[in-house]
């Protein structure tokens, strides 16, 4: 096993299990479609709320996607093979999260312009929404990976994982929606986006290591 063959195999298995990824995307689309119907479909309400709706829907679909991130690897013994391979487990985790991120976020970002119109999001702030998603979601995936690794050996770990992870998602959501609100008020968004990027970079540095430690603890 080497890093290239690992990434290829991960990518291939994600492609073979398209329905899991599509579920997350479908969930995202459904929340955004149903929200206006349930609250208030007028543009006066939706336009200012659009950023919040999009980000909550994203956070929930990311949670769906990462919840079982290592479940199959745990059950089929792949995690043991990662540890026995002599490769850095942190790098393997990073590659796996990268593949998952691409698989979920690329279709989501492609669908976003259409969905944003359903929420009357002004075109001028669409770019900020996309930027906040690009900069903020890596943190969501990486933090989620820690939770997924910690709970992988538990039979019903999903709820515990939500409790562990959701508090850590809150700052990301606050700064992301803050950036979108600032964009709608024609204010500068670079501050909030910089903080989002900082959170993703910190997660990038710490989360793979912590995930690797959790995986090692889960395997015995």
């Amino acid at each position: 096993m080497n890093y290239t063959s690992f990434f290829k195999a991960e990518w291939l298995s994600l492609l073979r299990r398209k329905q899991d990824t599509l579920n997350a995307l479908l969930f995202f689309v459904m929340v955004i479609t149903l929200f206006p119907l349930g609250v208030d479909p007028s543009s006066e309400f939706l336009a200012p709320a659009a950023g919040g709706i999009i980000w909550c829907a994203t956070a929930l679909s990311v949670l769906m996607a990462v919840e079982g991130l290592f479940k199959e690897d745990f059950n089929d013994g792949s995690l043991e093979q990662w540890l026995a391979s002599g490769l850095s487990v942190s790098v393997l985790v990073l590659l796996k999260v990268l593949a998952q991120w691409l698989m979920v976020m690329v279709p989501l970002l492609l669908a976003l312009p259409v969905l944003a119109q359903m929420l009357f999001l002004p075109w001028s702030s669409l770019l900020t929404v996309m930027g906040s998603l690009l900069l903020g979601t890596p943190a969501l995936f990486l933090i989620g990976a820690i939770g997924a690794a910690l709970t992988v050996s538990l039979r019903r770990g999903a709820v515990l994982m939500l409790l562990l992870i959701l508090p850590l998602y809150i700052p990301v959501i606050i700064f992301a929606t803050g950036a979108i609100r600032a964009a709608q008020l024609q204010m500068s968004v670079s501050g909030q986006l910089a903080i989002l990027a900082a959170m993703s970079i910190v997660a990038l540095a710490l989360a793979p290591v912590m995930t690797a430690i959790s995986i090692k603890a889960s395997v015995n």
Partner: peptide, 24 residues
């Protein structure tokens, strides 16, 4: 070379793809 109880075979991949993962 360690092969455990569950030897790390991905069920969505074919035998050939599984081998290619471990023996690139």
């Amino acid at each position: 070379l360690y092969l455990g109880h569950t030897p790390g075979i991905k069920t969505v991949l074919t035998p050939l793809e599984n081998l290619r993962l471990y023996c690139p």
